[in-house]
Design a protein around this nucleic acid. Structure first.
Lengths: 203, 203
DNA sequence: TCGTCTTTTCAGAAAAGACTGAAAGTTGAA
DNA sequence: TTCAACTTTCAGTCTTTTCTGAAAAGACGA
């Protein structure tokens, strides 16, 4: 447990969240029961107030839930039981905090007039970035709608699709170069090379 | 350009990379041509040596390439032309730096003997975490094998699948047997409960 | 080889961030 | 209402990270 908690402390500090927060989260995750702040402070060797800060932060990430145990006035904290739930919450929160604001900045910038040829290039780059982030945002929103077991299957499916394509590439006699395929997405108007992929998949 | 660079500086500092590095990367991305270190320093208002550090860091992330322009002794730097390439490199590098070490720690910890019932629970949690991370690692390795346009299609496909399932749920007359799926979890190898998901998809 | 142009390194200044103890705030039972 | 149990806040300290200028190291042409 020691090692796990310390590792996630380190990991935490590579991300936005700091060591304290990482460790608290790891501890709560491993612990079989909700813990009160003072036990956390004792277990990790942090000051009580530091733990209080950390817990507040974790709550803002929706990673810990506060609950009251009968016969104990102290507040107890716990992470969700399901690892997948934790990861999903984390992903969603990161999207909200990082992707969304970035997209919003990009949208604004794309409204500006292009003047110099230097700007022209920069503008085009921003659009590419914008489109990419929008695609990912949309995808992650969709993903969030799935039940966890469906999500797991979708991930496995992804892997299988890749391996399938890979296999196909090794047997070039089957791969004819296809066209076809009706409109798709549309939102970015360019005639993406379309077809090939889903057609291959579905066949 | 100003705004874009500043924004990515901020974003950078929320991630592991620092403001300087984020700004340098953003600047190179927007700039239509490779830039020498001193131009970067001037454009961003950092000291020459700071830029040198930043570039070194960016190179360790494989996000910038060094090149020599004819007739100029200075080294020039540029990001890949393709946004997708950048994001993919970033993802791969993060996996290497964050997921892999974590998995390795978890694997080690899972070898330890379980003693107390407290440990029992912690052990189980670590296993869940391990399995999840392994699934994601595998998936991301698979994903990396695709050409960019295939990847884009796969992402779109994912979204479409979700919307399809969602639609199906809204028309319960079609949806026979809910949930399904016997054992889930567990490593891989065995014939995963298979069916339910992809069968639904393919039909 | 030297001299010039360029990059890297590094010790320490400056800034940012984490952490603490003390004090103020909150809550619920009596 | 008061008190004790508990939580939060915050000013200040300590730690870490970032950034700089000066100096060393490297590269190239003459």
């Amino acid at each position: 447990m020691q090692a796990f908690v310390l590792h996630f402390g380190e990991m935490g500090s590579r991300w936005g969240i700091n060591r304290t927060v990482g460790q608290i989260c790891a501890l709560l995750f491993l612990s079989g029961r909700p813990l009160p702040a003072d036990e956390i402070a004792e277990a990790l060797g942090f000051s009580r107030s530091n733990v209080s800060m950390g817990l507040k932060e974790l709550q803002s990430w929706r990673l810990v839930r506060l609950q009251h145990l009968p016969g104990d006035r102290r507040e107890h904290f716990s992470t969700p039981d399901d690892v997948w739930q934790i990861v999903r919450t984390l992903a969603e929160e990161r999207r909200r905090r990082e992707l969304d604001p970035t997209l919003s900045v990009l949208r604004d910038l794309l409204l500006d007039k292009v003047a110099s040829p230097e700007d022209r290039h920069a503008h085009a780059r921003m659009r590419e970035m914008h489109d990419l982030l929008e695609l990912i945002t949309r995808w992650s929103e969709d993903i969030q709608k799935l039940e966890t077991d469906q999500l797991v299957e979708l991930i496995r499916l992804g892997g299988r699709v890749v391996r399938l394509l890979e296999l196909k590439n090794r047997l070039p006699l089957i791969g004819r170069g296809g066209k076809a395929g009706a409109g798709d997405k549309a939102d970015d108007s360019r005639p993406t090379d379309e077809s090939s992929f889903d057609e291959d998949l579905m066949s």
